[in-house]
Simulated assay, not measured.
Amino acid sequence: MRGQTISALELAAAVALFLGAALYAFHIQTMVDGGISAVGRMTQEQHAGVITVEMTNENRKLIYKGSEVLFTLREVQAGGFNMYVDGVLFQSGSNPEELDLSIIDLEAHYDAEYVRRIDGEVESIQFVKVR
C-alpha cells in the first residue's frame, strides 16, 4: 500500500511539473505573439515602395534609396539619433516638415554608415550619395 501511495505522489508531481511547463510555454508563446502583432502594427503604415537594396559582396555596406533616406527621417523626428546626408545635419527631434529636404535625391543610392555609442545604441547615421 505504501508503494502505491509513493507512486501516486510521484505521478502527481510529474503531472504538476508537466502542466507548469505547458502553462509557461503558453505564456511565452503569448508574449511572442504579442510582440509580432506589435511589430506588424508599427510597420503597417510604412510605404510599400520602400525596399532596401540588397547588400553587395564587395564591400558589405548597406545601400539605401533616396526614398528610404527620407523615411529614416521619421526616426530622427522621434528623437532616436542624428542623421547626416552628404554632410548636412538633421538634428535628433527635428520636424521633417520644417527642414530643407531638397538635399535628398529620391532616385540616388546612398551608402549608410552607422555611428554607435559604447553601449551599442545608434548615435547617428551618415548617408553619402553613391556616385
Rank of each mutant, 00 (worst) to 15 (best):
V130W: 08
V128S: 11
Y24M: 12
G20E: 03
Y110I: 03
E58Q: 07
L19I: 15
M1Q: 14
S124G: 09
Y64V: 01
Q29M: 08
Q77P: 15
S67M: 05
S7D: 10
P96I: 01
L23K: 15
L73S: 01
H27E: 01
T43Y: 14
A12S: 13
A48G: 14
F90T: 01
D86W: 02
Q44I: 09
Y64K: 03
V15D: 15
Y64H: 07
A25T: 10
V130T: 04
E121D: 07
E45Q: 11
G93Y: 02
Q77M: 04
A21K: 10
G80Q: 10
I125L: 01
T30L: 14
I118V: 04
T72K: 09
G49R: 03
Y64C: 11
M42F: 12
D105Y: 05
S67E: 14
G40D: 11
V122A: 06
I125E: 00
R131T: 05
Q44E: 13
E58K: 05
N59W: 09
N57C: 04
E123G: 12
L11I: 07
V115N: 09
Y110E: 00
K65R: 13
Y114L: 14
T56M: 07
S94A: 02
A78M: 09
G120I: 04
V69S: 03
D33G: 12
G93A: 01
L11P: 14
T30V: 07
L73Q: 03
S124K: 15
E10P: 15
H27V: 03
N59T: 06
Y24H: 13
A12W: 08
E45F: 15
V69F: 06
D119I: 07
V53P: 11
G3H: 15
R60F: 13
G66M: 04
A108T: 00
A12H: 10
Q126H: 06
G40I: 04
V53I: 08
